[in-house]
Design a protein around this nucleic acid. Sequence first.
RNA 1: GUCUCCGUAGCUCAACUGGAUAGAGCGUCGGCCUCCGGAGCCGAAGGUUGUGGGUUCGAAUCCCGCCGGGGAUACCA
Length: 651
Amino acid sequence: MQLLSLLADRFEEALRGWVEHPEEHARRVAVARDPRHGDYQANIAMPLAKPLGQPPRQIAEQIVQRLQVDDICMPPEIAGPGFINLKVRDAFLAESIQRMAQDDRLLVGNQTPRRYVIDYSAPNVAKPMHVGHIRSTVIGDSLCRVLRFLGHEVVSDNHLGDWGTQFGMIIYGYKHFVDPAAFEQNPVAELSRIYRMVQSIIAFQSAQKKLPAAERRLERAARAAQEAETAAQDDPQVRKASKQAAKELRAAREEVQALQDKVQAVLSDPELARLAEAHPDLEKRVQLETVKLHQGDEENLGLWRQFMPISIREIESVYRRLGVHFDHTLGESFYHPMLPQIVQKLVDSGIAVESDGAICVFLEGFDAPMIIRKRDGAFLYATTDLATVEYRMQHFHPDAILYVVDHRQSEHFQKLFAAVRKMGYADVELQHVAFGTVLGPDGRPFKTRSGSVVGLEYLLDEAVERAYQVVCDAERLERAGLELSESQRREIAEVVGIGAIKYADLSHNRTSDYEFNIDQMVQLEGNTSTYIQYMYARTCSILRKSGETIDADWIAQTTVVLPTEVERTMALQLLQLEDALLQTAQDYMPSVLASYLYALAKQYAVFFDQCPVLTAEDAELRASRLLLCHVVGRVLRQGLDLLGINVVERM
RNA sequence: GUCUCCGUAGCUCAACUGGAUAGAGCGUCGGCCUCCGGAGCCGAAGGUUGUGGGUUCGAAUCCCGCCGGGGAUACCA
C-alpha cells in the first residue's frame, strides 16, 4: 500500500485548478518526523505563500477545505507556520492490515515493468576474492531482489575480470614456478600461491627501481618542511605552504616505507629472492604472456581454458554460500572478439579520433579523453565497457543498466555514459550505483595490493563461528528453552553469520565509506540482522504456542483492533512497506529497506513487551494480536529476503 | 593544478532530498525477570551539525570563503 502517494494524490486533486504544477507541490507530503504531529505532514502551504500572495496559514486552511481525505484520515490540523498534519483513522489502519494479511504480496503492488540489466560483483578471476568484493555483490544482489519483487524484469550479469594481466601472471608463474604435485592435489591453492608469488616479485622489482627517487623526494620534502617550519608563520600563505609541506613529507615517508616493505618482503625469503633475481623485469615478461594470450597463442589459451573453470568453481562456492545468483556471467573475455569492431565503428562515425597514436573519444567537460585503443594497439577496459553496452542493448533491450561499482570509478562511468549517448543510445537509463570505499580498521582505504588481504571465505567462516558462539551459547539456549541438534545449531550460525556480514554492509548508506571492522560487524546486538532475525523467530514462537493455524479462513474471521498506541504505530509501519520498497528502488538504496526493517523489529519488541498476546483479556484481542504477529513475521521475513538474508524459525 | 566526495553525540552511522525541539545503535549511568523466549524493555547523561558569511518564513541539507580528510585525473582495471 502506497500511503504516501495515496495522500499526495489527494493533495494534488485539492490543488488542481488553483495553483500551477499541483503535482510538484503535492509531492511535499512526508511521514511526520515527530509522532506528536500526527502520522503524515504536508509542507505544501509555505512555499505557496509567495506565488499566491497570501499568508501560509491562510493557504493551509484553504487546502484543508478543498482536501478530501475523510475516508483515510481524521480531520487535518494546521500547525506552526502552515504545516498540515494528518492522522490516519484507526478503522482504516485495521481494515488495511486485515487486507494485508490476506494478500500474498503484503499489499505491495506490481509496478509498470521495466527491464533492468544489473552489473555487479565482477571479481577478477584468478585473484582470491577479498573483502572489497562484498559491497558490490551484496548491494547488487539486493537491488535485483527488490526490483524483481516490485514487478520489474531484471537481468543480472557478472562482468568477470577474466582476461586481464592477472592471467599473464599465473600463466608465467605456472610455466616457471609451479609445483606439479601441489597443483595436482589442490589447483586452487597452488594457483593462488603462484599468483601471490609473481605479484610480490613484480612489486619488489618495481619498488627497487622506484626507491632511490622516492628517497630523494623524501629528503627534499624533509628539507622543505624544515624550511617552512622556520618561516614566518603569521602570513596565511606561508602557513598554508607549510601545512602542504608537512603533508607532502608525510606522504613521502609513507611511500618510502611501503616500497621498503615490498623489497623486504622478498629479501626476507631466500627462495623468493633467488627467483626475483632469476626473473628480472618480470612485469614485462608477464605482459608478454598476456599479449600472447590476447593474440590467440595456443599454449596460453590452453592454459587459460584450464585455469578458468578452476577459478570459477572457487568463486561460485562463495556465491552459493552467499545465496547470490547471476543470470549471465559474461566476462571481459566474452567481449574480446568484438573490440576491433567497436573501435572501427566509433572511428567510422567520427566519434573517436586518433591522438598521439591512440584512438580516443574526446568528451565535452573532460580534460582527458577516453582512450579506447592504446598506441601499441591494445584495448582497454573502456573499450570492453563500450562493447558490453552495445551487446546488452542488442540482446537484452534494457530500459536501464545499473553498474554497482566503487565510487572511485565515477569519472570513468561519466565518460562511458557520455560516449554511449554519442553512439546514439538516448533512452536507456544509465546509472553508476556507486558505493563508498571499503576502509580498513585503520580507517584508510582498503588496498587490494597491500600485503595482508583478508580473504572473503576466511571472513565468512569467522562471522559464522562468532555467530555460533553467541547464538548457540549453552546458557542462552537453556534459558530460552531451545533444544537444538548440532546440525540445527550449525545451520542457525550460518544464517546468522552470513546475514550479519551482509546487513552490516547493506544498512550503511551506500554512498558513504564503510569501515570494515570484523569485530563490530559480528556484534550480535543493536542494529544488526541478528536482532531482526531474532524478532522474526519470536513471531514464529508465539504463533506456534498459540495453537492456531493461521490460514485464509482464520484471517477472514479475525477482526483487527488497535486499542493501544503501540499497536496502532506498528500497524502504520506495516502499511509503509511498499513506500520503503519504492524508495529503495528509486534511490537504489538497500539501506532504506534495512532501516525500515530495523524500526519495525524494534516496534515489535515494544509491542511484545507491552501487549500480552496469548494471555490477552479477551478472544477478540488475542486473535487480533496474533494476526499482527503473523503479519510482522511475514514482513520481516520478506524484507530480509529482499536484502538477501535468510531467517530461521528458532534461534 | 583541475574535477569530485566527505566532515553530525566519546565511537559507528541516520535524518524521507529545504521543514517543527537533529535521531538510532554501541559504550557509560540508573531502573525492570514467580511476567507469551531479557539477544529484550523503560529512563538519564551526551550536539554551536568542522568554521565564517550569504540566500528565505525555515539550512545539517542550497551558494561563497576558510580549515581538515578521502578519491579521480591519456594509454592499469
